[in-house]
Amino acid sequence: MEFIDYYKLLELERSASKADIKKAYRKLARKYHPDLNPNDKEAQARFQQINEAHEVLSDPEKRKKYDEYGKDWQHADQFEQAKKQQAASGGFSRGFGGGGRQSYSGNFDDDTFSDFFEQMFGGRARAEGAHRGAHFKGQDFNAELQLRLSEVHESKKHTLTVNGKNIRLTIPAGVENGQTIKIKGHGGPGIQGGPKGDLYITFNILNDTNFRREKENLYSTEEIELTTAVLGGEIQVNTFDGKVKLKVKPGTQNSSKVKLKGKGFPKYKKEGQFGDLIITYDIKIPENLTGKQKELFQELKNTGI
């Protein structure tokens, strides 16, 4: 356990007045307050140190004890004992503790004063330090979960590790890229008996398919032969569930679209409901024709097509 120089922490001289302490504390608290530094653990740790330093230096009794023993804090109790004996034989006596305090709660767990503080000022001071009028909700956590599009086609269970804790969640089918869901009570612990914070998960969905997704609708492009487009026919197209047969009408134009109802993506939290699959035809113009094929096309041309 190391000695903590509270004056240094607050960037103060040892002769600092009460007003100096307050001013220095306020300046640093504004800089490192956890509410102003979201998700910054370093700032949070620094703020706790500053809070602790203020807790000691703003209380005349605690400051006196701290100043008196300084680096010899480990022997403070022995010194106190010796003084008490002296008092009993006509010397002076004194105690410490109590007194007013003003400390900031921040958005963090209060039970994190240093071992040095704990050892020097004991449990009572600590309990006082933790006292506040209001109960605060714990910090909300934000996490991002990266999933593939093919993974969110069905509701699936996923295990997330947040702050070292494993959370098993069922991610409903149809969640969207960038969508954020709230998991109640999985955030930071509440302050002074306040409720736990919440966990917000934002989904980052990577498309690992050939489909383009817009909400619950899927879009794809299918190449079809020129003859199929002209004469009509049957083709096989890919859907999320596998291949399906599709009739192509004679005289189908390039870039024309067909809609396969209910073959799109599942609707979020609407079990059994699906969007549509919209297929755009891309008519393939034949290349490298044989002599015979060219002749036939020429014949067609001559008919006025």
Partner: peptide, 18 residues
Amino acid sequence: CDHLAEFEKMMRLHKELD
């Protein structure tokens, strides 16, 4: 209740940091 955390944050900043 979803906006309570935001309120508490603002209240802390107002009360504690003036």
